[in-house]
Amino acid sequence: MSKKILVVDDASVVRLTLKHLFESYHYNVLEAETGEEAVEKYKTFKPDLVTMDITMPDMDGITAVIEILKIDAKAKIVMCSAMGQSNKVKAAITAGAKTFIVKPLHPERVLSVIKKYLD
């Protein structure tokens, strides 16, 4: 059975790009537009991995990481954000994210990180 990835980003162009990339490698993908939507979808979709943006309307990505980890302490969350300042990266890792990829997203880099945590 294919592994499941929840892609969380307020930018539809990013969600679509990551969805196409992951589906071409036979992952099962679900999208969420906000942190709040991600937390809700996590409960039902139960993904093997989450890619998470930081700057989003409603609930930001770091708060969403904390909320998801309350639901599943073993959740694997990879931050994918343009906010690459050292303090943001530190905040995301402290919140419980596995790692941080700074945008722009390069397909090879994204895939290598995803595979590292899924395989």
């Binding site: 930018a11 539809s12 162009v13 343009a82 906010m83 700074v102």
Partner: peptide, 24 residues
Amino acid sequence: SDLVDSAVRELCNMVAGEASKRLL
């Protein structure tokens, strides 16, 4: 389309994110 707006918005977000990183 919304996709075009999203791409422009994302470019702006990435540029400002990179500038913020450099400013810090």
